[in-house]
């Protein structure tokens, strides 16, 4: 195991973590501030991926396609909030889970009706299709570097928005104590709508960017929702900072488990057992991390509620 291999895996963990962060930040805000469990977040991710893929295929430039996907998903999310999610704020979590699960089923069928049941092609922009030579012995996919760059930019942007703007202050106020914020004259309803749409935009961005390196297909949002939920539980519900740290942790732990565990086990165990055990442990690494955090800090690493 040489240093190149370790550097490459660190980059992989960073990239995967930042991608999870894009998805988890929105989910965490919606859950933390509105106390609303929105399972349909994954459907917004799917919408972003499909719209970007189709727009790109229809001839739009890649950046234009991504922006179009974000814009279209924002509109969808706005309508969804007005029509359904708004009515769920005052209900209990079970009602929210059931209603938003229903939205998932409907979204999947709508996508199937429009684009068919088969996965669609999301082409990579030609300029980023190959690897770039980061170090003499380390070629790294150019597209993954783009993902890392965008992820860091979005994290910075969210930090500035949440910590240094007036709307960010209202968002934090709503997240830490909703009742008090309302008493202080914050129009929580408007903040809710803003946060929901912001979360949707982040989900759409994640979906649009993930398209070229993953399968754009029905159900893609559900598959990625599970690691995103793990992230917000570790990070502390409602905290963008927590989502960021937790996403990077999950990305690193998951990648390290898959990259280093099997070879390490093979050095000490018979090959068949090492392959079996390594794969099993790597599969549950992120859940072990979640369990450990929950034991030490039951409200997550950075709880938004005091």
């Amino acid at each position: 195991m040489d240093s190149i291999f370790v550097i490459e895996q660190l980059l992989n963990g960073l990239g995967y973590g930042l991608m999870l962060f894009l998805l988890a930040a929105g989910l965490s805000l919606v859950f933390g501030i509105m106390d609303t469990m929105n399972l349909a977040h994954g459907s917004l991710y799917m919408a972003g991926a499909y719209i970007a893929a189709r727009a790109h295929e229809a001839g739009a430039g890649f950046a234009t396609a991504v922006l179009a996907a974000v814009a279209a998903t924002v509109v969808i999310a706005f309508l969804l909030e007005q029509a359904i999610v708004r009515r769920l704020y005052a209900r209990d979590h079970l009602a929210q889970v059931i209603a938003t699960f229903g939205v998932i089923l409907i979204a999947d069928d709508v996508v199937k009706a429009i684009w068919g049941p088969s996965p669609v092609m999301a082409a990579m922009p030609a300029a980023l299709a190959g690897p770039v030579q980061l170090l003499p012995e380390l070629p790294y996919p150019a597209y993954r570097l783009l993902l890392i760059g965008v992820g860091l930019l979005v994290a910075l942007g969210l930090y500035l928005l949440v910590s240094h703007t007036r709307i960010g202050m209202l968002v934090r106020a709503g997240a830490s104590n909703r009742g008090m914020a309302e008493l202080m004259g914050v129009r929580v309803g408007r903040v809710f709508s803003f946060v929901f749409v912001l979360g949707a935009a982040l989900a759409a961005l994640a979906g649009a960017l993930m398209g070229p390196i993953s399968a754009v297909q029905i159900g893609m949002g559900e598959a990625i929702l599970i690691p995103a939920l793990v992230v917000i539980v570790i990070g502390g519900i409602g905290s963008v900072r927590g989502a960021f740290v937790a996403a990077l942790l999950v990305g690193m732990v998951d990648t390290a488990g898959r990259a280093f565990l099997p070879p390490a086990l093979r050095a000490v165990l018979p090959p068949a057992l090492a392959a079996e055990l390594g794969a099993a442990l790597a599969g549950i690494a992120m859940y072990l991390l979640m369990a450990a955090v929950l034991i030490l800090k039951p409200a997550g690493l950075f709880p938004a509620r005091g």
Partner: peptide, 20 residues
Amino acid sequence: EIYTKVGQIDYAAEIARIRA
């Protein structure tokens, strides 16, 4: 012999192992 998670999305770690 590499065994991955069912439904895995990101294969960067496995691809690095293959390269190595």
